[in-house]
Design a protein around this nucleic acid. Structure first.
Lengths: 190, 190
DNA sequence: AGCTAATCTTTACATAGGTTAATTTTCTTC
DNA sequence: GAAGAAAATTAACCTATGTAAAGATTAGCT
C-alpha cells in the first residue's frame, strides 16, 4: 500500500497547496483481477495510480496476438499515456492481473493545474523524462540482449513477480513465446 | 536549414525574454561526416540541435556490435538524453553521417532557466512526453512487426533517407543484419 | 478430496534471420 | 577513366524461436 503523495515527492518537491489541489482530483477505485482500466479504441481521459496490485499494459496486432508492453506494480501511474499526451486514439489495453487499489483522476483537470503550480509541471516533466529513459533502456535490451539475458534481468529487477502472475505474461513481456521461455528455463535449470 | 526558434515554438509558445535567454546559450558548431557528437563513457553535459545533416545514435554491446537506436535529421535535438536526465554514465554514441550544422548548449545552464521561465519548462515537458510516445511506438513496432513491415514503414516515414546513408545503417536501425535487409529488398522487388 | 480449468512443458516441425565469406556493384579519388 | 575502397548482394550453413498439438502439472472450486 503506497502513498501517491510520497511517490510524487520522491520525484520532485511540491508545495502543500499544489498537493491539496492534486489530491482533490483523485478518487479511489477498486479493480478486480481481470478487470480492465483502459481498452483500445477511444481517446484516453483518465490517469490512474496503483497503490497495490499488478497491471499489465498490452498491445494487440491485427491477428489478435498480444504483446505485454509493461508490467506495472505499485507505486506507478497507469493509463493510456501516449494517448493522453497526443490526444490520439488509445491503442493500449490495461488489465488487472491481481486485485488492485487505484486512485483515479481526470487527466485534463490534472494538467490544468500546471499553470497554477509550476512545481507540479516540474514533476510531470521529470516523470516524462524518466519514462523516456526507461523506454530507451528497454528498447536497447530488446534488441541487444538474448531472450535468456532478458529473462535473467527481469528476475533481478522484479524479484518474485514471476511467481505472482502466469509465466506466459512474462514471456510476452520479454518478447518471446511461452514455449520459448519454457525452453530457456529448462536450459537455466541445468 | 531549420531554425531552433521555430522548432521550440512548434512545441509550445514561449516569451520573447525566455527565447533570448535560451538562444544566448547556444553556439554554432560544424560536425564533419564521421565526427562524433558524443561517445560513451562519460556523463553527458551538452545538448545539440541539428539545423542540417544526419546523425546516428547507436549503442554497442560487449562484442562491439552496434545497434542504431535512432537516425536524427533536422530539426531535432541530439545528445545523451538519458545521461543528461539521470546523470548516469552515457552509453550512447552519436556520429555524423553527413556534414552537420549544429547548435550546442550546456545542458545544466539550459535547465537552470526552468525556474525563471516556466514556459520553457513546459517546452521541456512536452518534448519529453513526445519522445516517450515515440519510443513507445518504436518498441511496439520492433516487437509486433516483421522486419519487412518495419522497412516499409521506414521508407514511408523518412522518404529518401535510404539513399543518403549506407543501407547497413538502416538495417541496424530496423534491428536486422545488412544481409537480411538485402533479402527483404530482393523479395519486395519481385 | 476430487473435478475442472488453467498453466506449463515437451515434441515435432517450419522459418526468419544470424554469420561468414565470396562476388558484384557503386562510389571516390587521383 | 582506371584503381582502390566501400557498399551491397548472394550463397551456404546454422540457430533461435515461432506454431500447433499433446501431455503433465498446478490451482481453484464445491
Amino acid at each position: 500500500m503506497v502513498s501517491l503523495r510520497d511517490f510524487i515527492l520522491s520525484v520532485s518537491p511540491i508545495s502543500e497547496s499544489a498537493w491539496q489541489d492534486i489530491n482533490a482530483l483523485f478518487q479511489p477505485k477498486l479493480l478486480r483481477k481481470g478487470d480492465y482500466f483502459i481498452t483500445e479504441g477511444k481517446t484516453a481521459t483518465q490517469i490512474g495510480f496503483i497503490c497495490s496490485g499488478i497491471v499489465r499494459a498490452f498491445a494487440k496486432n491485427q491477428n489478435g496476438q498480444e504483446y505485454n508492453k509493461h508490467l506495472f506494480t505499485a507505486p506507478s501511474f497507469i493509463g493510456g499515456y501516449a494517448s493522453l499526451i497526443t490526444g490520439n486514439i488509445n491503442k493500449i489495453n490495461q488489465e488487472a492481473l491481481t486485485d488492485c487499489e487505484l486512485l483515479v483522476a481526470d487527466y485534463n483537470k490534472l494538467t490544468a493545474l500546471y499553470d497554477k503550480h509550476p512545481d507540479f509541471e516540474r514533476v510531470a516533466r521529470k516523470l516524462a523524462e524518466f519514462f523516456f529513459a526507461a523506454k530507451e533502456q528497454r528498447e536497447i535490451e530488446l534488441v541487444m540482449l538474448s531472450a535468456e539475458e532478458r529473462y535473467l534481468l527481469f528476475r533481478e529487477r522484479m524479484p518474485g513477480l514471476e511467481f505472482e502472475i502466469p509465466l506466459y505474461h512474462i514471456a510476452s513481456y520479454l518478447g518471446v513465446s511461452a514455449v520459448q521461455l519454457s525452453r530457456i528455463r529448462k536450459n537455466l535449470a541445468r
